[in-house]
């Protein structure tokens, strides 16, 4: 086995991990802001993917068109979900969130089946340029684009939360809504904003994943579990944590699939996840 080959495995793992981070960052943001786990998150990604498919089939537009459209559409969906559903179920026990967002997941997943049909859709593989070779390692245009945008969006989200006044207002609401309200911050507005940001990030992720993945109504199910593990591993609410965890999971998956066997890669990722929680119950980058 050559070093180049091993390096190729690591590089594909990192690019995959950056995508994991991208579609997990929205989930992480919501979780951190509101202590809400959105079980419909995978369906948000799925709808972002369908946006890309529709933009291409109806308008012939590539990711340059579909990414902004998906960002706007899924952000709107997020805000709607917040005002119509999440705002209300937050008053109930934690179980109500699972109940409500799981119901939403089924509704969206099978709504997509109804509207788009059960068939698998794919985008043409040369939509985002061709693959290129750098230092003996092959890079696929669509994956590089998704990986790079994943990094940029995650870092921007992190900066927004930590370096801007709107970010500190959002964090104030997440720490103590009542106190924030006394300081003149409107919690609901901040929370709706969080859902919009999370939705936009998720929409972007979906539109980019669609360029190298298949799209089907049940695809969200596959992606959601990865997102849950990424976010919990990264530490709740930490966008940077999601990035680190995403990259880590991507590389661990790739290496274990290559060296041990693809069937066991999930076993290794889940086992590693449970182990990390055993030693660091707050996740890799979470604060206690």
């Amino acid at each position: 086995m050559t070093t180049t080959l091993l390096l190729q495995v690591v590089v594909s793992g990192l690019l995959l991990g950056a995508v994991y981070a991208l579609f997990s960052s929205g989930l992480s943001l919501i979780w951190g802001m509101m202590n809400v786990v959105n079980f419909a998150h995978g369906e948000f990604v799925m709808l972002g993917m369908y946006t890309a498919v529709v933009v291409w089939t109806a308008l012939g537009g590539g990711p340059w068109a579909s990414v902004p459209i998906a960002a706007i559409l899924i952000a709107t969906l997020g805000v709607l979900a917040y005002f119509l559903l999440v705002r209300h179920i937050m008053r109930g026990p934690m179980l109500a969130q699972i109940l409500g967002t799981f119901g939403l997941a089924l509704f969206l997943r099978y709504g997509a089946l109804w509207v788009f049909g059960a068939n698998f859709k794919t985008l043409p593989d040369d939509l985002v340029g061709h693959s290129f070779i750098l230092g003996g390692i092959r890079f696929e245009g669509s994956r590089v684009l998704a990986g790079v945008v994943g990094l940029v969006v995650t870092v921007l989200l992190h900066l927004l939360l930590t370096r801007t006044s709107i970010g500190s207002r959002m964090l104030a609401v997440s720490e103590d809504a009542t106190a924030a309200q006394l300081m003149g911050i409107r919690p609901q507005r901040m929370q709706a904003l969080a859902w919009a940001l999370a939705g936009a990030a998720t929409g972007i992720a979906g539109a980019l994943i669609a360029t190298f993945f298949y799209t089907s109504p049940t695809v969200g199910e596959t992606l959601a579990i990865v997102a849950f593990v990424t976010v919990a591993l990264g530490g709740f609410g930490s966008v940077m944590g999601a990035l680190v965890a995403g990259l880590l999971i991507g590389v661990v998956e790739s290496l274990s699939a290559f060296l041990i066997g693809p069937v066991y890669k999930d076993v290794i990722v889940y086992a590693a996840f449970v182990l990390v929680l055993w030693f660091r119950p707050q996740g890799l980058m979470g604060t206690n």
Partner: peptide, 20 residues
């Protein structure tokens, strides 16, 4: 013999294995 899970998010490692 390569067994993999059908709902894999990624099959690059398997293809690289085959390539090797």
């Amino acid at each position: 013999k390569v067994a993999y899970s059908a709902n894999s998010t990624d099959v690059q490692p398997q293809v690289l294995q085959l390539k090797e």
